[in-house]
């Protein structure tokens, strides 16, 4: 490649692009944490974007992200103004953006659960008490930043054994998302795993789970999880009362085809204080400073 002849060219391109990034009129953008199968995310959330565009009267776009942290960062940097967060990612995101609000949660999210699942070869049975028999086996969480796949299971493991998971299990992994956790435990790559109960139920219905190979051994006590959070400055950026309009639009989302993307039966109101338990747990196990 030529170096010297391209210098002015590159310089021009870089300068133009640097200026252009601040000049374009912004649509309303949202994202969602990638907590399950990513295929067709764009299509599923594309429909939600269309719904919001029509209901809000503002062009609404969905952008896909690769990790929970990327969703939080995009929210913090105002590259998205609305996000479908998990409990922990929502707490983190709202701590970073002053005035941001939890708007709505799924009807199932006020009492969310994590299932501990185990490969059948362990011979563990489901019980009311925490399954202490899993010590010494291999264990997989979901994503490092997940509430149902990391925070709550790690909390219960630490509470029951009084030690960090790495000391208790022979091998500890992070599968990345709930679908993969199920697949890994079902195949026996890990003997035990922790999974979001909604994803488990959906995959069970879709016939992806073979109950002869993998089964539930424990259900955690309920805790608050997923929610829609919005930045505090949307009223200023878009129009007065915009935040209320967004809340109303989310709460009146009734089309099962749209709700399937989450998957939730409906949305109900939520507030920041609903998530105080999550914040306390995260601090107690050292996931937030």
């Amino acid at each position: 490649m030529q170096s010297t002849r391209t210098i002015p060219l590159i310089a021009t391109i870089l300068t133009i692009s640097l200026f252009s990034v601040t000049a374009i009129a912004e649509p309303f953008v949202f994202t969602a944490i990638p907590d399950q199968d990513e295929s067709q995310l764009r299509e599923r959330f594309g429909k939600v974007a269309n719904y919001l565009s029509t209901t809000l009267g503002v062009e609404t776009k969905y952008i896909p992200v690769k990790s929970y942290a990327a969703a939080v960062t995009a929210f913090r940097n105002n590259q998205v103004q609305l996000a479908w967060f998990g409990g922990l990612s929502g707490v983190r995101a709202r701590a970073l953006v002053r005035g941001s609000q939890a708007l709505a949660q799924g009807a199932e999210d006020s009492a969310f659960e994590t299932y501990f699942i185990a490969h059948a070869s362990l011979g563990l049975k489901e019980g009311k008490a925490f399954p202490k028999g899993i010590a010494g086996t291999t264990f997989t969480f979901g994503s490092k930043g997940s509430t149902s796949g990391r925070l709550m299971p790690e909390f219960h493991i630490r509470e029951s054994f009084g030690e960090s998971p790495r000391k208790i299990f022979d091998r500890v992994g992070f599968s990345g998302d709930h679908s993969r956790t199920i697949a890994l435990v079902q195949s026996g790559s890990y003997k035990v795993g922790a999974v979001n109960f909604k994803v488990w139920q959906r995959e069970l219905k879709e016939g992806k789970i073979d109950l002869k190979k993998v089964k539930i051994i424990w259900r955690t006590p309920p805790y608050p999880d997923y929610q829609w959070s919005v930045r505090g400055d949307v009223d200023k950026t878009f129009s007065v009362g915009f935040m209320d309009k967004v809340r109303a639009a989310l709460l009146s989302m009734k089309d099962p085809d749209l709700l399937k993307a989450f998957p939730r039966s409906s949305f109900i109101p939520a507030t920041n204080s609903d998530y105080k338990p999550i914040k306390d747990v995260a601090r107690s196990i050292g996931l937030i400073d």
Binding site: M1, Q2, T6, L9, I10, I13, I16, S17, S20, V21, T22, I24, E26, N77, N78, Q79
Partner: peptide, 22 residues
């Protein structure tokens, strides 16, 4: 060699510059 400037301009043109940062 002769196509390089075209590629570079093309590359800069197709990238999604719309996302802002401050």
């Amino acid at each position: 060699r002769f196509a390089l400037p075209v590629y570079l301009i093309g590359a800069a043109a197709i990238l999604p510059w719309g996302l802002s940062f401050t």
